[in-house]
């Protein structure tokens, strides 16, 4: 393990307490809602925030006793914080200069890095002359210029518009793949996390609620927050080997679980009927429509009843069934479309 950290930060009405392990070359994303403590964790790793308790060990050396300027880290801030009075080149050269490189040497390093992020032509530009995507790349180059062993990225794509984001995301992925140190990035965007990270750590209320490979987390969410992020309906119930009881409903599932279990299914797997369907699918319940909203090309229907669920159906189906808030409907779900795993 190149990075091992236990981060405890105590504040009035909030405590962050998480343990992190990051391998060399691994990218770990801290994912969580606003106020969960992701940025606090990142700032603690950077040394911008004192730990109340815990330790940070990088390559066997304790880091938590060092001030920020002595930690072998590179950090990309959410709005980049490029120094407005310096050119892109001098922004990137700032770190090497602080590490004792001569001006010429630092500029040479900086020029190489700008070249690598494809901005050699903009070396002389001031930050305010750069586009959002360019500024992000300069910020990345600046962080990499100090040859960090630990790279920290705070919402690296949040300040970009949707179009730029797509391009920068894939570029960033390539750069992170080239980086041989440990990387911790913070985001609240599941897509960024899935694309950029090798492993996700989900934080809620200052504690880790789930971690694992992105695909694993997406398929088997363990909290409502994660389920919402990855767009699944999620319930906690009790399995008896054949079915899983959630409240008064008993779900038939393909996987068999005994004891506490999660049931997850996609909103698209839910079918709605005005009258009780014939042939009685295995999972059927009566629900009341709480709200209807547009969701991409489909329509998302919020259902109340024995369970709270969302269903995605086509606009044509909405018209055909004459669905409206307050209506009673039947909701059904094939066993093959559900996913059950131990809680």
């Amino acid at each position: 393990m190149t990075l091992h950290a236990r981060l405890v930060v105590t504040r009035p009405a909030f405590t962050l307490d998480i343990t992190l392990e990051v391998a060399p070359g691994e990218v770990v994303a801290l994912l969580g809602p606003n106020g969960a403590g992701k940025t606090t964790a990142l700032r603690a790793l950077a040394g911008l925030l004192a730990l109340s308790e815990g330790e940070i060990v990088l390559d066997g050396r304790p880091l938590h006793t060092l001030p920020a300027e002595h930690r072998p880290i590179g950090m990309v801030f959410q709005d980049y914080l490029l120094f407005p009075h310096l050119s892109a080149l001098d922004n990137v050269a700032f770190g090497p200069r602080c590490q004792g490189a001569s001006r010429a040497e630092a500029r040479r390093t900086a020029a190489e890095l700008l070249e690598r992020v494809g901005l050699a032509a903009h070396a002389a530009a001031r930050p305010r002359q750069l586009s959002g995507g360019q500024a992000q790349r300069v910020a990345l180059a600046r962080a990499l210029a100090v040859r960090p062993r630990l790279l920290l990225l705070d919402e690296p794509l949040a300040a970009l518009d949707a179009h730029t984001r797509l391009e920068i995301r894939s570029r960033l992925r390539r750069h992170l793949a080239d980086f041989d140190g440990a990387t911790v990035l913070v985001t609240h965007d599941p897509l960024d996390a899935m694309v950029l990270a090798d492993r996700l750590i989900v934080i809620e209320h200052g504690a880790i609620v789930q971690q694992g490979a992105p695909g694993e987390v997406a398929r088997r969410p363990r909290t409502d927050y994660v389920a919402r992020l990855v767009g699944l309906n999620l319930y906690r119930g009790l399995g008896d080997g054949a079915r899983i009881k959630v409240g008064e409903l008993a779900f038939s599932t393909v996987e068999q679980v005994e004891g506490p279990a999660f049931v997850a299914f996609s909103p698209a797997a839910v079918a709605l009927y005005r009258t009780r369907p014939d042939g009685s699918p295995r999972n059927l319940w009566r629900a009341r429509i709480d709200g209807i909203e547009r969701h991409g090309d489909n329509v998302r229907v919020h259902l109340e009843g024995p369970i709270t669920a969302v269903a995605d159906i086509t606009p044509a189906a909405v018209a055909e069934l004459d669905l409206a808030p307050g209506r009673e409907v039947w909701a059904s779900l094939k066993a093959a479309e559900t996913h059950a795993y131990p809680a």
């Binding site: 950077a46 040394g47 911008l48 001030p67 920020a68 300027e69 002595h70 930690r71 880290i73 590179g74 950090m75 801030f77 914080l81 120094f83 700032f94 770190g95 602080c98 590490q99 600046r142 962080a143 210029a145 100090v146 920290l152």
Partner: peptide, 14 residues
């Protein structure tokens, strides 16, 4: 904006 100072600190500036 003090965060510029923080950014400088993460770059190794005393």
């Amino acid at each position: 904006d003090r965060r510029f100072e923080e950014a400088a600190a993460t770059l190794g500036a005393s």
